[in-house]
Write a protein that binds this DNA or RNA. Sequence first.
DNA 1: TCTGGGGTCCTAGGACCC
DNA 2: TCTGGGGTCCTAGGACCC
Length: 419
Amino acid sequence: MYALIDCNNFYASCERVFDPKLNGKPMVVLSNNDGCVIARSNEAKALGIEMGAPAFLNEELFRKNNIHVFSSNYALYGDMSARVMRVIFDLVPALEIYSIDEAFVDLGQMPYENLTDLAFKIRNTVYQYTGIPVCVGVAPTKTLAKIANRIAKKRTDNGIFIIDSEAIQEQALSLTKLEDVWGIGRQYTKLLQQHNVHTALDLALTDIGWIKKHMSIVGERMVRELCGQPCYRLEDQPQAKKGICTSRSFGKAVTEFKILEEAIATFTARCAEKLRRQHSAANLMHVFVFTNYHKPEQPQYYGNRVIHFPMASNSTMEMISYAMKALKIIFRENYHYKKAGIMVSGIVPEGQVQTDLFVMDPNRRERDRKAMAVLDKLNRRMGRDTIKVAKMGYNRSWHLRQEKRSLRYTTRWEEMLEV
DNA sequence: TCTGGGGTCCTAGGACCC
DNA sequence: TCTGGGGTCCTAGGACCC
């Protein structure tokens, strides 16, 4: 059996832990740059606020209903997530962290009474230790555990739902709409509805050959999982990423080359950090800049350039020097840039970098490696960008708009909650 | 003034290898 | 008479997830 543990309205719940006045009140959390609604409390959902709704179109609605609005505070959510995961990990044999607010657990052959006890124990302990409410769904496959969790959230009072018999499984499938199945997106919903498939139960009963033909092996696995046949195991060892991207929309449009340089240098430094954290190096870098496509009346431009490194790298200094060259090539005067980013790929393990006989001075690589190790250590201990490359600058004009961010209660001494 | 930021996997087709 | 049988790697495009 698998359990899926999913935090309720996670970002909203994190805010409530440190400001209990918000309990029972409608509230939303906005995306980076205060753009879209990305989390809603139940009260906000009940008021009809849609996921992904642009904030500036809903200001009236927010005001009229006294909805509390927050900028996203990823320092807080990331740290709270780590705490929730640690609490769960202490109670179970193996844990797969699936997303910032979800985890799968493999429960093996545990008997029913123990499953129920464990599910309650997880729910109660996480709430007691972190203040975050979670729901637990238990079923013979991951896809069914997703469905069980959904039912636990929407249709139970105690936040637990266990699929442990064929009768319950069939009932759970018949209560689940097609588009709510894990792996069914917009396109497959359209395709399947044309073939008179409307619920998860209809999908489970669809001819597997037809599924394979129209939805590939991925669809076949999904249908088998719905029938109770496990096709996915617990992945408790996180895999190294195959591509890493750091990109941001700017708080306000950028026209100056120098400011764009600082943004690109900063994004590159983040990508290099992420590479070093997973002990990888990249062979390719993709640099891109955008104007604002929501404003078709302005001149539009999309500039992008791919750089092949002479040797795979994860050195912030080296990568920034390549990124700056790419930016010089793609930059055009007189455009209002709204977004930029860096993507790295061709990722290899740090210890398996194919060396180049002619290009790079091996002494410099070794010097960079040591410098990066010291930089990471200092920045981990003293805070991000305590030591940084000068090109990343001090100009904050391109930074995110975050007008309503709460304090970083758990990661900054100076922002700790005062009682 | 104003619309997020990350990821994964699969398939088909083309170019190449022996 | 009548044109083999195996592979790999890369890219683009399309689907999906949180």
